[in-house]
Structure formats: C-alpha cells, structure tokens
Design a protein around this nucleic acid. Structure first.
Lengths: 249, 249
DNA sequence: ATAATAATTGCAATTTTTTGCTGTTTTGTG
DNA sequence: CACAAAACAGCAAAAAATTGCAATTATTAT
C-alpha cells in the first residue's frame, strides 16, 4: 500500500470522526503503529491534522464545538453584540437564532428597549426573561441537546408563518465562495427557514470563523444583508466579501 | 479515550451546565477523579474554564436564572418529586407543566431513564438538557415572564395535537370543593389544555396549598387521577379528597 | 539488466507521558 | 475546633513516543 493512500485514508477518517486512534488505523491498514505514527507526523507537519498523544484529531477540533461556549472570544463577541445592537430600533420584531454571540446580544439589550423577539434558543429565551420590555415568543419543537435550540418540522412550520424585521443568524462557518455552512443537518433546515422569515438577515460572526467550512450548506453569502465582525470594515480579511451586496460592520 | 476527547467533553459540559463536579465527570467518563483534576487544571491554565474547589465553572458564569426566584419548601418538593418519580415508567411520554416541584422532578430523573418529555417551561427544558436519554419537545408560544412558561393560542394548539401517558400538573391552589384554581387567566387556559392532552393527570402539590383559592378555575378535583403531597396518604388534611376517585400518594 | 543508492517499513531498546493509587496536607462547613 | 471532602505530591505500572538499526522495496545510473 502506498504512503499516499494511507495518508488519504487517515485524513478521511479524521474528517469523518474528528479523531482517530493510532492503534485503530494500524489495525485497519494492516501496518505497524510506527508507520501510522510517521504518517501522522508528516500530516501534522503539513498542518493537515493535529497529532495528539495516542492518535490525532481534526484541526478544528477545539474550535467548532457547537455547544461549548467559546468563552475566550467573549471579548470579540461582546464587540460584535455592541455593533449588532445599533441595528435594532425600538419596537421592532426580531428573530434570534442560537449561538453565544446572539446570547451576548440578548444580554446587552437595553432594559428600556421595547421589542418582540422570536427565538428557538433556550439560553437566549432564558436570558430575555430578565428584560421586562421584551415580548418573547419561543419557537417550539424538538430540542437539540448540543445546540440548545429547537429543530424539526414543527419549529420550521412555525417559522414559515412569521415575518420579522431582522433575523440575527449566528454563524458557525462562513466562506466567501461556499457561503454559510453548518455541521448539523437539522440546524441547517432551521437556519434556512429563519432566513425566509426575515426581511433583513444579519450575521454576527467572529473573524476566526471566516473561511471555515462545514459539511452542509445553509445559503450563499449573497443572501445575507449584513455581516458583523469584530474587525474594522476595511480589514483585508473581509476583502472577499466586498461588492457582493453585503453591508460590512 | 484521547485526552483531547475528555477535554472536549468537559468543555461541553461546562458550556451546558455552567458548572461541573469532578466526581460527576469522573463517573461519566469512567476515569479517576485525579485524571479529571489534571484535565481541568490544564484547561484552567489554558483559560478555557475556571477551576474551583470540587469542580469547575464556565468563565463567563452567566447566572442561569435571571429572575433569581428561590425555590421555597425545597425539602417537601423534593419528597414529592421522589414520589412522582415512581409513577414514571421507562419509555413513556410525559408532559411537565411549569412550577418548581416539576423542576425538581426533572432534576431527579435518573440519567438512564428513556423518556419523551413535552414541556412549555423554560427552566424545566433547560434542566432536561442534561439528561441525555430524554427527548425534549418544547411547546412554543408566548413566554410569560412570571411563570417562565409559554402560553397563548399557539401553545394551546400544539397541546391539542398531542396525547401523552402522564401529565404532571404543577398546582398553585387546590380546594376540595372549588377544585384547582389559578390567578393567571392565560395559565388557566394552558393547564386546561394540558389536562385534555393526557391519559393520566397527576398533580404534585405541597400541603400548604391545600384549601387555598384563586380567581380562575382550572378543573374539578375529580378530573385528577393522582394527587401527590409530601404527607402520608392517611393524613387528616387529605380527608376531603377521599372517595373521589383520586389516588393519594 | 544490474548494481548502487535511496526510501520505506517493521522491530527492539530506551525514554517520555499518562494514569491510577497511596498517603499527606489543605480547604470548606457546621 | 472538628470533621469530611477535596487538593496535592510522589510513586509505579502501563501505554505511547522516540531512536537506532536491519530488512525490504523502489528508484536511478550505468
């Protein structure tokens, strides 16, 4: 068996499972663990995966945890939430998808602001309980444990009946060519429905997520109206999104 | 299991629950507490979470319960929840109304019990996120700030479509002659709908509430199948409910 | 074609890392 | 202050990484 084949196989496995055990691969390919170790070392040096004790994990293993709150980027998310806040006018009807950036936005809503807020996210709804001037309408359905939002047909049906002023669409991965992508199929369906339910779609997104890619596609970049990052609007990282009918904030 | 996986798991748990116990994680991952301690130390050094005595908390420890209602009579409610637990069989479909007693019940559900659980209550749904074997279906609608449950036409419509094995109906006031009563009209409507949606209606109710009366009526005592209190079933306070086709627990 | 050379692979010996366990010390609680 | 729980330090067994080396295979030059 050629080394290239093994490398391909290993990358594939890592792509599927996000992690592999050295011993497993050695078994499956019928080669010694030393060989696999060397393969993984090469792939590690080529930055194709991350070598760890006992195996390897995919590069984004720590970054894209859908449930875990990326606390260390709380500062950036807070900035993004501040910018997002500027887009909301008193009395509007908004839709908040899940995600920690939107949670941050919910937390920062000024107490006196009157809003009607739709959301399928348990933590966000809970956060909004503290805002006495916000009318909360929770979009029911099957609760996905990972993302803590509701998904499924009934939630999507509910969405199809509403039309809000702004949808703040938390974004896991955004790519200039491939658009918005997600890891979880159910959530993709939800986000598609949310886009349909809004007059204006705003995507708050920390810059780390720009250029990353997940398995399933939500929509093209063109379908967004506003992209909010913690960066300056003229930052080079955003070049790929210019002249595409998106407002950069 | 790779160390990276444990780290990931721990971060997830912290993300969901905001706090974890060393012993819990050790149990769940089937490793020694020392290993978890070392993991948490590493994550702490990497500023991914905050290590505290006995476990860890998330960095941006956002208070889970913004309204900060403290649960009174916790001891009695805990007893009631224990009794209620006896009525649930593995694999059943249950409906939990709001209320702190039902929250206590949700908290006590054994981790291995497989259930499908409908609820209109945000705190209960949030609590259930931690139970990996429970399918949560949230009944959407307008969120009432006081009670932290959804109310209104759409929630009631959803209820009219379902039929569950047991409904646990948190009770504010119960009176031998006047039946169950509530002070909030919207919640009355919800509870009426819940009763219709269940084959068996169980009311967990601390004894203090017996004999009290509110403005609006939900149903007669006869419509309940089981009444659970913290008292002995033969206590004199329950005399008024005997021979009325209700099981006293 | 064949010899020389280089790359790859598996194996054994050694070193490092991880992990659970043992006491001992520290900390939190009533 | 006393008690129990948790943290800590040190140790030993097990697992994994590293290194050197020999055997095999592939590549190249002649």
């Amino acid at each position: 068996m050629l080394k290239e084949e093994r490398h391909q196989y290993i990358l594939n496995e890592v792509g599927i499972h996000n992690k592999i055990l050295l011993s497993d691969i050695a078994d499956q390919l019928k080669v010694s663990v030393d060989t696999v170790r060397r393969d993984i070392k090469e792939l590690h040096d080529a930055k194709q995966l991350k070598k760890v004790h006992g195996g390897a994990v995919s590069l984004g293993f720590n970054n894209f945890n859908p449930t875990g709150k990326n606390i260390y980027s709380l500062e950036k998310k807070s900035q993004i939430a501040d910018k997002a806040l500027q887009l909301i006018k008193d009395g509007q009807v908004i839709l908040l998808s899940g995600g920690t950036t939107n949670l941050e936005l919910a937390r920062k809503l000024p107490p006196k602001m009157k809003l009607t807020c739709f959301t399928p996210s348990l933590p966000i709804a809970t956060q909004l309980l503290g805002k006495s001037n916000v009318d909360i309408i929770f979009i029911g359905g099957h609760v996905s444990k990972d993302s803590q939002i509701t998904v499924g047909g009934s939630a999507i049906n509910t969405l199809s009946d509403i039309k809000v002023d702004i949808c703040f669409l938390g974004t896991n991965s955004i790519h200039p060519n491939e658009g918005l992508t997600e890891f979880d199929w159910e959530i993709v369906q939800m986000k598609k429905a949310m886009i349909q339910s809004a007059r204006q779609v705003v995507s708050p997104c920390i810059s780390e997520k720009i250029g990353s890619l997940q398995r399933y596609k939500i929509c093209d970049v063109e379908e967004l109206d506003v992209l909010i990052t913690e960066l300056d609007p003229w930052d080079v990282k955003l070049d790929a999104f210019r002249n595409r009918n998106i407002q950069l904030v």
